[in-house]
Write a protein that binds this DNA or RNA. Sequence first.
DNA 1: TCGACGGGTTACAAAACGGTTATAACGTCA
DNA 2: TGACGTTATAACCGTTTTGTAACCCGTCGA
Lengths: 224, 224
Amino acid sequence: MKILSADDDKDSLALIAFTLSQAGYLVVKASDGVQALRAFESEGPDLVILDINMPGATGFQVCEQIRTKSRVPVMMLTVRGEEEDLVRALELGADDYLSKPFSPRTLLARVKALLRRAGMENTAPLAAGRIRLDVDEHTVQVGSNPPLRLTKLELRLLQMLIANSGHTVSSDRLLMQVWGHKGSGDRQLLKQLVHRLRQKIEVDPAAPQMLQTAPGAGYKLVVD
Amino acid sequence: MKILSADDDKDSLALIAFTLSQAGYLVVKASDGVQALRAFESEGPDLVILDINMPGATGFQVCEQIRTKSRVPVMMLTVRGEEEDLVRALELGADDYLSKPFSPRTLLARVKALLRRAGMENTAPLAAGRIRLDVDEHTVQVGSNPPLRLTKLELRLLQMLIANSGHTVSSDRLLMQVWGHKGSGDRQLLKQLVHRLRQKIEVDPAAPQMLQTAPGAGYKLVVD
DNA sequence: TCGACGGGTTACAAAACGGTTATAACGTCA
DNA sequence: TGACGTTATAACCGTTTTGTAACCCGTCGA
């Protein structure tokens, strides 16, 4: 498990790196925003920890950049009392925050919780019932039918539904997970994507068996 | 979702209650530590917000008491610059803190984050007597009957009634909780919604057993 | 006895929702 | 560049949900 930590305060960075290393994580360090972005590109970490106040590019900018291309969990470090910063961070798509100063124990607990929530810890068995998903190939296989190619968005949607198979996932959450933060509120996008996905995976797209609608709530994947 | 807020500063308490109510939470108020503990016992809130400086019993004491019997998320309110307080609060088992003064937006963001972290956001198995509510699916199950689909408003109403099951909830309170500020004063909306909900969940909608009227006051959910 | 009031019921209109289709914008790759 | 697959935006339709108004019918006090 690889974690990218960016902070311009050497001591703080060292403490974070030490704590996480002790816990068995591989830590990549960056001491400013530009470095952080470069490291993000080259290392492809599973989680990112960003200090808000950094030279080069602020944590906000880095977070925003990362969110344009990835949904990797992001934790922001704020200084105590700067609530405005915090709100902005969450709005930019950060998944959690931690106020300095914090204890190593707290940091570790939060990191673990984030990884668990993102479903990173257990290599997500991307299958449910008769549906098997191949993320690398961008394909699904339903039953013993030949595999179908999926687009990026279709794949992500199906991924979310499979991860919660049997339970309804709210439209808002799907919007958030599939499109990132910007998509929130846009019903049409989801409507369309669901429609296209149904055309591909349902036997009779007009009477969906697997990708069912939960009126007023969202959608759910029904497996036998 | 029920939140207990304790603060001896009337203005502060009112602001918190208003903000959270607007966001759809059910708020229980307390203006000192003793009240807070009593309310905690009787209401069983899903989250507790405690001001540190309170007469009766300080936020510390209340937090400590709560922690002896519950793992409910606790947020502490501190005044800026009192670092020792903060550390002590976290040591006593508080999950988060907020420095006064704070913006409503900030409060809401933190509360949501806390509930999310506690896994309360949608998995709350809301139930009272023979009634079980599935917020994700937008369904109720009465006894062993097949689950019924509820609309958004019906769900919210039932949620409020279940959260206070056995006690009468005033019409004004329901109006506020279900529709937000705009609905205040409009009895007809509530009348209608109650009627529709009764049609769905009551065996004989003309003689309601569960969703009873408290004449001149409001409605209450009666469970065996 | 009357009439105002609160609550229940009925009926209908307005708005929101979900599915569908069409079309435009965008990105990629030959 | 142009063709293609993908994604975004808009319009339309039928259905469900919600809002609004009217009426009914008890109770209660003048």
